[in-house]
Design a protein around this nucleic acid. Structure first.
Lengths: 205, 205
DNA sequence: TGTACATCAGTGAACGCGCGTTCACTGATGTAC
DNA sequence: TGTACATCAGTGAACGCGCGTTCACTGATGTAC
């Protein structure tokens, strides 16, 4: 399908920039990162292959925008997750939120890291979504009693971030399906694994 | 350059299968996974684009072989790392070995996981290098006092595997360069981060 | 040891494909008077 | 309110490219006698 809605096709799209980013996400969800070409995005948005160039300098810039929105969404989800949770459960909540997001949007998640690596390689920080998201974790660690600005806080934050990222990537492997089922679902599974990582303290009940 | 050695060019390569896999690794090291096309591999091996088809069914099979060798190498490195190390330091040694390998061969490491995901998606287990490597970790956990075959062992092994994988992916970000330098090098850095993860017990000195 | 021949492992040209990007263009919109 | 015109946001055709794969071929190798 070329159009999401039955609306009459207009020569001017209205907000094609938005439309292109949405189209990219639809492609990611449906066919994964390898299907994400500029032409495919234009096709999905119902527009000619040249149209995107009025809104993005090149393919990299479009992908960067998609990634940036992804980081922003993850960040918001983490902020929501920690709201109203007691200090000793806050980090665990953050971890579950992080891994949950990554598992629900695996292709987008991949693109987010690809963009972060890319923007580091090219030196362009173009809206450092990864940095802002990482800050949410570090701030939370301080709230939960971490010594601010010491190497120990940084180490703990990196350990937590790594653990969550690693789990997000591993959770997709069939090898762990049985374990997941045994524990009664994704969320319980995430909690259980995270509770084995010292940086995600979970009060044992 | 088309030939690595000054040896006279022979019509028959001798062991082109080997040569192609080596060529692939050279490309990975030099230009990363995105440069890894069948044609590029043939070029690097000094052979026509059609030649690889006498040794591999298609591109996926070649990449699978490269990945398989990578998993095997990682496995050996882990086995070496744990040899002759006392039980209470064995897991930490394994973690350092794992992360070290991934950091020294980042492009190969990426291809290894790509292949693992792929072979899971297509159902073909074609030499499950990831499985064998994971087993080294799980076996080590049992040696170090884990209850065999319980869900707890599986959880701990997954937690450790995730942590190491996550750290391997994060260690490349500039964000952590200062911390790495502060701790005095890669290995010390890996040890420090891993020691924050409960599943990698490190005796504090 | 020499020769005929089957088999193996290469070649090189060609295929169709989808890609990112550019270009001259045109239809729609908004603003000045 | 109507009209001229600049600007904006599209079109569609074309570019060159590298890709994976196939094909008919040929040079090299090894085996039977």
């Amino acid at each position: 399908m070329r159009e999401a809605e039955g609306e009459a096709r207009r020569y001017h799209h209205g907000d094609l920039r938005r439309g292109l980013i949405d189209a990219a996400r639809q492609i990611l969800e449906a066919d994964g990162p390898s299907a994400l070409s500029l032409r495919a995005v234009a096709r999905q948005a119902g527009v000619s292959p040249a149209a995107p160039y009025h809104h993005f300098k090149d393919k990299a810039e479009l992908l960067g925008a998609v990634a940036q929105e992804g980081w922003r969404a993850l960040q918001l989800r983490m902020i929501q997750a920690k709201a109203g949770v007691s200090a000793d459960e806050r980090l665990a909540a953050l971890g579950v939120a992080y891994v949950g997001f990554a598992r629900e949007n695996p292709a987008l998640y991949r693109v987010m890291y690809e963009a972060a690596r890319q923007s580091q390689a090219t030196g362009s920080a173009l809206g450092d979504g990864q940095g802002a998201t990482y800050s949410v974790l570090r701030d939370t660690m301080v709230e939960c009693g971490g010594e601010p600005d010491g190497p120990d806080l940084e180490l703990a934050a990196l350990a937590a971030w790594s653990s969550a990222h690693g789990l997000a990537e591993m959770a997709g492997f069939k090898r762990f399906h049985a374990l997941k089922a045994q524990l009664g679902g994704e969320t319980a599974f995430f909690k259980a694994v995270l509770s084995h990582m010292a940086v995600f303290p979970t009060p044992r009940r």
